[in-house]
């Protein structure tokens, strides 16, 4: 089920913006080493710092440009609040990154568009609550959004154990991917130039990857990411089915896109059931709630 319809134009915007945004993470692999372009190399990170927030805003605006149903909006706000509120709890009790846990499950239930929005709103709300607004925020938002989007794109047919297994696997992968991308973003800023762990402009991609891997190992973020991946997967295995059921129940109760119909007053109310079917089919097209 998809709470938020992603129109073809939106999909194209999403793809283009994601492609451009990916470059803002991976630029250290591609910056040229030619001396004549050193000026460009120096300005690239700053340009990207300015560009990414705009790209994130563009995609969010595009996703909601068709108008978003109040039920989906309230669900989005409340789930983002759950993410923001459970975050300290998760860190306190078990070192669980609850954000991914709920993001993956909600993306799965409510569809890719909703998942994308939830990723961004969750991290944005969390940042506002903890006064953590800064240039890193759009990057975190985008990564989380990709995770939510991906969860919504998993094969729809799966149910039961297979679904839990796939979601747990995806959750673990997503946790690694998030860690890797954020490391990649942080890498040039944290070590600076001139160390053996710094990126080398113009060097082959593999060499830079090697250095990134070393940086990750040295800053022990790899261990952190592993812990996060394991707890996310375990949480999805243990609590996933119950949370999925709760989310699906909420979706059912909210009656997203339930047919809305009007009919003339029936003179014989006892025969309503037959009338409903007929009128429902006829009226749904005319008066459907957006």
């Amino acid at each position: 089920m998809s709470v938020l319809r992603v129109a073809p134009r939106t999909a194209v915007v999403l793809t283009l913006a994601s492609a451009a945004a990916l470059a803002t993470f991976t630029w250290p692999f591609f910056v040229p080493a030619h001396p004549e372009s050193t000026a460009r190399t120096a300005e690239a990170p700053l340009v990207f710092l300015v560009m990414l927030p705009v790209l994130v805003a563009l995609t969010l605006a595009e996703l909601t440009s068709g108008g978003i149903d109040s039920k989906a909006l309230a669900m989005l706000g409340v789930l983002a609040a759950v993410n923001a509120a459970l975050r300290p709890l998760g860190a306190g009790t078990a070192g669980i990154e609850t954000v991914f846990f709920l993001l993956v499950l909600a993306g799965r239930v409510f569809g890719p568009g909703f998942g994308f929005l939830l990723g961004s709103t969750s991290l944005f709300a969390s940042a506002l609550l903890t006064a953590g607004v800064g240039p890193w925020l759009p990057f975190q938002m985008l990564c989380a959004s990709w995770i939510g989007l991906g969860a919504g794109l998993l094969p729809a047919r799966l149910r039961g154990r297979a679904e839990t297994a796939v979601l747990a696997g995806y959750g673990a992968l997503a946790a690694y991917g998030y860690g890797l991308l954020m490391n990649l973003w942080f890498w040039p800023f944290s070590v600076g130039a001139d160390t053996q762990l710094s990126y080398v402009a113009g060097a082959p991609v593999l060499e830079n990857l090697h250095r990134l891997a070393l940086f990750t190992a040295v800053t022990s973020t790899f261990g952190w990411d592993t812990g996060r991946a394991i707890t996310t997967a375990v949480a999805i295995v243990l609590a996933g089915p119950a949370v999925l059921a709760a989310l699906r129940r909420a979706a059912r109760r909210a009656a997203f896109g339930a047919p809305v119909a009007f009919a003339a007053a029936s003179d014989r109310p006892t025969e309503l059931t037959a009338g409903v079917r007929r009128d429902g089919a006829a009226g749904a097209g005319a008066h459907r709630v957006q």
């Binding site: 809305v260 119909a261 029936s266 008066h287």
Partner: peptide, 10 residues
């Protein structure tokens, strides 16, 4: 029925 879905006669 706009929010809840369903049919309103009359």
């Amino acid at each position: 029925p706009h929010f809840t879905g369903g049919t309103l006669h009359g």
